[in-house]
Simulated assay, not measured.
Amino acid sequence: LHTEALTLEWARPVFTAPVFSFGAFVSLALPLFVVTMASQNLPGVAAIRAAGYRMPISRIITTTGVATLLLAPFGGYALNLSAITAAICMGEEAHPDKDKRYSAAVVCGALYVAIGLVGAAVTGVLLAFPRELVAAIAGLALLGSIGGGLHAALKDDGHREAALITFLVTLSGVVVAGIGSAFWGVVAGALALFVQQYGTAKSKHP
């Protein structure tokens, strides 16, 4: 354990006045928007629908955008659907009854608030443990969500190859033009699906 990283202090919000510039818009704001939409909101919507929920996606994303606008000066920027957390909270492990799984999100939100108040101490605890142990614990927490997502994505024969390509490209961790693998996985899967359906349609109508 690296105990020198342990500290105990309350977190304090610090206001940072926004400064607008074209350079920041092109090099920071726009890429951050694309990454947030591609790597969090898009998988988050997919996780919501894969779990069988039908929600007003436009209103949800609008709400997160307004909240980001208000909280960004205090460090709360890029609020989003949080794909991984959403997948965990909407799984059968959260509650057998699908209508009561919101309780997992409530508990998760309360924990976020508590952890935020002692953010420095929690970060120190995580840094004190070996990186491999933290990664292993996080991986174990995601096993159920990953298994359920793969089962739902691969059960349709017509979309199986595209879904598998999407998963593999996303898993690769490739970064192109500053955009993460989640976005390129969706692009690769969409192209694969287009090619597959185009080939099928062409074979039916030569």
Rank of each mutant, 00 (worst) to 15 (best):
S39G: 12
F194V: 15
F74C: 03
L81E: 02
E93T: 04
L191A: 12
G189K: 03
P96Q: 01
V118N: 10
G91C: 02
K155R: 10
L171H: 00
I165L: 12
V19K: 15
V26A: 02
W10D: 05
K202I: 06
G65L: 04
L168K: 04
L28A: 14
E161L: 14
K100E: 02
P31V: 14
A47N: 02
M37S: 04
L6M: 08
G23C: 06
K98N: 04
A67E: 09
K204P: 09
L70N: 08
R49N: 07
G116M: 06
V113F: 15
A29F: 08
G91N: 01
G158W: 00
G185V: 02
H151K: 13
F22W: 08
S181K: 03
T123H: 12
L70F: 14
I165D: 09
G76Q: 05
D157T: 11
L140S: 05
F183P: 06
F129W: 11
A138R: 02
L70R: 11
S103H: 11
L79R: 07
L8C: 10
D157G: 09
R160D: 04
L32A: 15
A86S: 13
S27D: 02
L28R: 11
P130C: 03
A87D: 00
M55Y: 08
L140R: 01
T200E: 15
T7I: 07
G76H: 08
I137A: 14
T3Y: 10
V35P: 01
G178D: 01
A50M: 14
G139M: 03
A104C: 07
G189I: 10
F74W: 15
G119T: 07
L111A: 14
Y53D: 00
A177W: 12
G185Q: 03
D97S: 04
I60K: 13
R131A: 15
P18G: 09
A201H: 14
P73E: 10
P130S: 11
C89Q: 00
I179D: 02
R12W: 12
E4D: 14
R160S: 10
D157L: 11
D156Q: 07
T166E: 05
W10R: 13
V125P: 00
L126D: 02
A153M: 11
P43H: 06
Q196P: 09
E9Y: 13
A135R: 04
G75N: 04
V45Y: 03
S27K: 01
L70M: 13
V118R: 09
V19N: 12
Y102L: 01
A121D: 12
A83P: 02
Y77L: 12
R54L: 03
F15M: 09
L71P: 03
S145Y: 01
I57H: 06
A11P: 01
G23S: 11
G180M: 09
I57R: 03
R54Q: 11
G75R: 08
L140E: 00
I179A: 05
G116S: 07
A5L: 13
A11V: 01
H95C: 01
L71T: 09
R12P: 00
G180W: 06
S21V: 05
L69Y: 11
K204M: 13
G75F: 06
I179P: 02
L69K: 06
L42W: 04
E92V: 01
L143S: 03
A162T: 07
A24C: 05
T123Y: 14
A110F: 15
E9K: 15
W10A: 05
L168M: 08
G199F: 02
E92D: 09
F20D: 08
T85I: 11
I57L: 10
